[in-house]
Design a protein around this nucleic acid. Sequence first.
DNA 1: CGTAACTCATTACCCAACCTAAATACCACC
DNA 2: GGTGGTATTTAGGTTGGGTAATGAGTTACG
Lengths: 146, 146
Amino acid sequence: MPDLIHDGDSAAAVSSLRSAVMLLGRRLKHQRVDESLSPTEMSVLGTLARCGSATPGELARKEHVQPPSMTRIVALLEAKGLVRLEPHPDDRRQKRVSQTEQAEAMLAESRTKRNAWLSHLAEGLDEDEWEKLRAAAPVLEKLAHL
Amino acid sequence: MPDLIHDGDSAAAVSSLRSAVMLLGRRLKHQRVDESLSPTEMSVLGTLARCGSATPGELARKEHVQPPSMTRIVALLEAKGLVRLEPHPDDRRQKRVSQTEQAEAMLAESRTKRNAWLSHLAEGLDEDEWEKLRAAAPVLEKLAHL
DNA sequence: CGTAACTCATTACCCAACCTAAATACCACC
DNA sequence: GGTGGTATTTAGGTTGGGTAATGAGTTACG
């Protein structure tokens, strides 16, 4: 762990990251790609799309949410027909959560909407700034999952 | 607005940014630098430290929060002795909000705590990744303020 | 075996941090 | 001097999480 990391620049960057993330998070809550679907619900669908299927507990750990919250989220997604719940083959305590074809379609649609939002944001940033964001995105994701 | 911006990489980056920001935001809510001070309150103090003083309305606009929310936040900060409220010299509808010496001290203390948090996170990222974060931090901040 | 300890999911309840709508006080302009 | 617009506040509601306690199922151990 080099001391380079603890210089003033990094301290300022962390401070800046902190406030920017909180602020952006607040705004993203409102500018949703899909109305009637909270950011966490969206995120769960994304995770399921990547992982195929998972148990509620696994999802809770991946989204850094407590199990009861994930229970509620999964129930909402099921009510919207975006997710299917099946008994776990080996362990009758657990359940298998997997996405439906409808969720697949919704994700595709959300991708186009996201492009529209992207175009809107593009007005405010130049190509160099976008490049920095693209480079940082995977790092932020890694950071978010610790 | 070049078409470069609308390629698949950027769409993926936006998607990745979205979930990472929401996730990080959720976690930052819990890992606060100072207990008993919400992220937004912290952010308001930071803004005041930069700007000197402002009216509640100005603060609401800068933090992208509705005026009633800022009223409450300012009231809480005042109750904690971190902020001072004075009548506006020119307009008796408005108020001037400025930070107290106590807030100054608290911000200094929070900076050291932030460094501790930073050291903890540093374990998970290499220098190259930090460099990307440092580069992206100001862009994220710009993005957050639209 | 059988029972004790643990784990997964859930239920019930709570709380923080926002929001909108409406009220109040004030300014500014014709 | 009334009228429309703006700054803040009050009142009340919603949302997206959290904690504590319960029930059902599994595992380990005497």
